[in-house]
């Protein structure tokens, strides 16, 4: 392409913050049968500056038949204040090159590389009420946001709906519920869509959408932060708008 006249190219300042980092695996936690939390400690003297909600591209190392490295995007699940380390929450995807590496090959002390931070899914600095909705590994950016707000002493009204199919798909429930004692007006609401017959679940069931109404006090002054599948994002966005939340105040990170 030839440029025949002067053009202005606007480059977001955040682009200049993207770097490649070296880190070491410092902790691996099995959250569920298919979700792990991995803590990466950055190399000495390194620090990462990101906004809660952003993601990094994790690079794999060669293993078994995988001879080349691949990069995959994962939301950061730890707070930005933890500058010399970060956590990712990674769900195992059968046949996935990166998730197989993480779940079956990565071990404590391994050296890894990632680039970032990327993305425009981040908390807006307002006083509006907040509805969070996530499912599966979509919990990652919301966890980062809540941990960040806990550091800054947030007083906003917040409700966090976490959708899962069965009880075995729930994780970090105690940690999320504990935020109810950190913030003056916060509620964590796990909802199971298909609880196993006979399980001892006494919480909410079905989809998350019918429960929004009770959590919204002033829809025009409410923001929503969603992370999950396109199906979840669509259904939840529709329900939030029906409850009066303006579309421009619904922010999301869709897996699709």
């Amino acid at each position: 392409m030839k440029v025949k006249s002067e053009i202005n190219i606007e480059i977001p300042a955040s682009i200049f913050n993207i770097r490649r980092f070296e880190a070491t695996v410092a902790e691996i936690i099995d959250y569920t049968y298919d979700i792990k939390g991995i803590l990466f400690k950055l190399a000495d003297g390194e620090s990462i500056d990101f906004m809660a909600g952003q993601y990094v591209q994790l690079e794999t190392s060669p293993y078994d038949k995988v001879k080349q490295k691949v990069s995959r995007a994962y939301s950061i699940s730890s707070k930005p204040e933890l500058q010399n380390a970060l956590q990712l929450i990674i769900r195992y995807v059968p046949e996935g090159i990166c998730t197989t590496w993480v779940h079956q090959h990565l071990k404590l002390g391994d050296k890894v590389f990632f680039t970032g931070p990327y993305g425009d899914f981040f908390l807006r600095d307002t006083e509006a009420d907040i509805i969070y909705v996530a499912g599966g590994s979509g919990k990652a950016p919301i966890k980062s946001m809540l941990e960040h707000l806990a550091e800054s002493g947030c007083r906003r009204k917040m409700t966090y709906f976490f959708g899962a199919r069965t009880k075995k798909d729930l994780y970090l429930t105690d940690e999320m519920t504990a935020f109810e004692n950190v913030f003056p007006d916060f509620k964590y609401v796990p909802v199971l869509s298909a609880p196993e017959p006979g399980c001892d679940w006494t919480g909410k069931t079905g989809f998350v959408m019918p429960y929004f109404k009770d959590a919204i006090r002033d829809p025009k002054n409410t923001e929503a932060y969603l992370c999950g599948s396109p199906g979840m994002i669509n259904a939840v966005t529709k329900a939030l708008m029906e409850n009066g939340i303006p579309k421009e105040k619904i922010y999301y990170d869709s897996f699709g």
Partner: peptide
């Protein structure tokens, strides 16, 4: 079924269809 939320959809009264979207 791409943007159906967490459910199997019955199409043409014969096909149960579900699509799981993975990031990337």
């Amino acid at each position: 079924t791409f943007d159906v939320f967490d459910a199997r959809t019955v199409i043409e009264e014969n096909y149960e269809v579900e699509t799981e979207v993975i990031r990337g």
